[in-house]
Design a protein around this nucleic acid. Structure first.
Lengths: 113, 113
DNA sequence: TCATATACATAAGAAACTAATGTATTATTG
DNA sequence: CAATAATACATTAGTTTCTTATGTATATGA
């Protein structure tokens, strides 16, 4: 199943913050690949959405960056700032709560698996 | 908990289609009240989002309407067309699948309740 | 009678995306 | 070894979908 684009809207920040919570530091391209892998291609982040979001999170002091050269190519690593660590937890628990609300509203049964 | 607005984005159509699936016919204001009630005020649809969406769904042949006078005031009832019934099921199961993907991605435990 | 609730609607602007384009390096494969 | 795909960054025009505000009008309750 490939999700309609509207469905994934609004989840990008939460996904980024969760991955960085688990992985200490990641670069943009790595994030797209990790999400593809973890969701079996169901969610594919586009660069046009990802990079501006990463820049905005950095500008807000939620992420910090370190640039490194891999050969001749720059790779920009992102990490959670202290503020980002707090926000990460908040966003994940907010989404968890949202899932419960939507499950009730849409009368969706929990998957037994 | 009040959800950040971005979180609810993209769910409006699905919510409308679910309520109309269960209730045969509903009018706009009734939909806002029902969602408020069912979600304990967690999700509050704004009229500026709701009415244009209802109009678009009608224009797409997903919803049909009947207008009735309640006293001197017009009330516009919406119902699912055959196309709408199909779409309703699709949207709900798409969201159910999406929830499972996101639960896995964000490592959210199922609520035992 | 005055505020609140009911009930519709639209419109300007913002947010958050898509799709396309651009640049450059590195790895793979025929 | 040349062509293609993958890696890795970035931006921009345009679209969708929403928020916030405004508008109109009737009905109800204090």
């Amino acid at each position: 199943m490939i999700y309609s684009t509207e469905l994934i809207k609004g989840t990008l920040k939460t996904i980024i913050l969760k991955l960085l919570k688990d992985n200490k530091r990641m670069y943009g391209y790595e994030i797209t690949q990790k999400v593809k892998e973890l969701t079996a291609d169901r969610i594919q982040l586009t660069e046009g959405a990802l990079y501006p979001t990463l820049h905005a999170l950095e500008a807000d002091g939620i992420l910090t960056t370190e640039s490194e050269y891999i050969g001749k190519r720059v790779r920009k690593y992102y990490s959670l700032s202290p503020k980002g660590k707090t926000l990460s937890k908040e966003k994940i628990s907010e989404f968890a709560d949202f899932i419960n609300t939507m499950k009730f509203l849409l009368d969706i049964k929990t998957d037994i698996a």
